[in-house]
Computed example of a mutant assay.
Amino acid sequence: MTIRTLMTGASTVAALAVFAGSAAADTWRYAFEEAIDEVQGVFAQKFKEEVEANSDHEVQLFPYGTLGESADIMEQAQSGILQFVNQSPGFTGALIPEAQVFFVPYLLPQDTEELNEFFRTSRAINEMFPELYAEQGLELLKMYPEGEVAMTTREPVTRPEDLNEVKFRVMTNPLLVESYRAFGASPTPLPWGEVYGGLQTNIIQGQENPAFFIESTKMYEVTDHITFIGHNNFTTALMANQDFFDGLSDEDQQVIRDATDAAFEHILEYQDGLSEASLDAIREARPEVTITVLDEDQREPFRAAAASVEQTFIEMTGDRGQEILDQMKQDLDAVSVN
């Protein structure tokens, strides 16, 4: 065998290796928990647009239900079947207990500008949480808000006592269970696919979600009252499979980070006025639904009832949870206009 043959053979092997790596990364699979026209879907579409405009890669999107429930897509992301997954800490809380901090009632601000700036600049989000996600084989790319959470119920709610014995659907998140237990309800963890039917058949009598999601999923068809008690804003997160991300070139990693930043700013702008438009659509579709925003005096009993949940979070998560919570409070103080 000549030296030229050996070199040609080596070159062929190298070329095949490069081709194989390129082919494996050519189509990136991205699953999320909502429909293509809901907030996570809009974020995903912008991410796809930016990646494909600035690289040779293609991003294939999988909306809710196409690959199973939330637990299914997380398993697929951790195993490398999916390159990207968008999932709320409401579901990752069992995997990453500290992520449940986003369900401490009345922690996040109501002011939109403060909230957005917190997600942009928070040290807890941008420096501390990535380390926790990495322990689970996930590269945390971005956390972002989706909108103020409202409760939907069969009966009106103006005080915690109105939730007594109400079977209230919650995500499979231990701290969210504790929050609604503190409010006086009977928290009932259910996969999202069972919620509409559960409300329709009175297996459950309540659930919570941002207004856009209540409208788009037609939850108003199986509820009578929508109530804002000011307790939370729905948070979600985009993650990548850690091995996949670490195996990319610096250039491709930067493409992903730039696309994520662009999608983040796009989704904050997209949400401006979204809740109000969704509530208007609900009023038009079903005028008999009552929509109530509790004032500060009405919210105070809910705040008092939920005061124990913060301590429960610390008990669940120990020193690391305490550090996360303390840092988040510092980050929130830094963006507060008061």
Rank of each mutant, 00 (worst) to 15 (best):
G184F: 09
G197F: 08
A304G: 02
D37T: 08
P301Y: 09
G147P: 00
F183H: 02
D243T: 15
E251A: 12
Q60S: 07
S308E: 10
T217S: 07
P63M: 06
I314E: 05
A134K: 14
E114A: 15
A77V: 13
I96S: 13
G230Q: 14
S70C: 09
G230D: 08
A53K: 15
A307M: 11
N232P: 02
N173G: 01
E117W: 01
A53T: 01
K218L: 00
A262C: 09
G80Y: 07
G247L: 02
Q271D: 05
S88T: 12
D111F: 04
I314C: 01
F129K: 03
A277T: 13
N233T: 08
Y180N: 13
L16T: 14
Q207M: 06
I214G: 00
Q205T: 13
N126T: 15
G90K: 04
E114S: 14
L332H: 06
D26R: 14
F43P: 04
A259T: 05
P160A: 13
K329C: 01
S336E: 12
R29D: 14
A277V: 06
Q76V: 02
G147Q: 01
A150S: 10
A305I: 07
E288R: 06
V101R: 03
E178Q: 15
G147H: 03
E296P: 10
M128G: 12
Y270L: 04
K167G: 00
I282C: 01
E33R: 08
F212E: 15
T8G: 00
E146Y: 01
E75M: 11
P210C: 08
L95P: 01
M151C: 00
V85R: 07
E221M: 01
I214E: 04
L248M: 11
A99I: 02
E117V: 06
T158D: 10
T153D: 02
F244L: 09
Q136K: 11
S216H: 00
N54V: 11
I125M: 06
L95D: 13
E265V: 11
N241K: 04
D272T: 12
D331Y: 00
K167Q: 14
F32L: 05
A240W: 05
T260A: 09
F19P: 01
E33P: 00
D246C: 03
D272E: 15
D319K: 09
N338Q: 14
L190G: 10
V337N: 08
Q78E: 03
M151E: 00
T223Y: 00
Q45W: 02
L190D: 10
S278R: 03
I226Y: 02
E315H: 07
E161S: 15
Q271S: 12
E117C: 04
F313S: 01
L108H: 06
L95M: 05
D295C: 10
F91S: 11
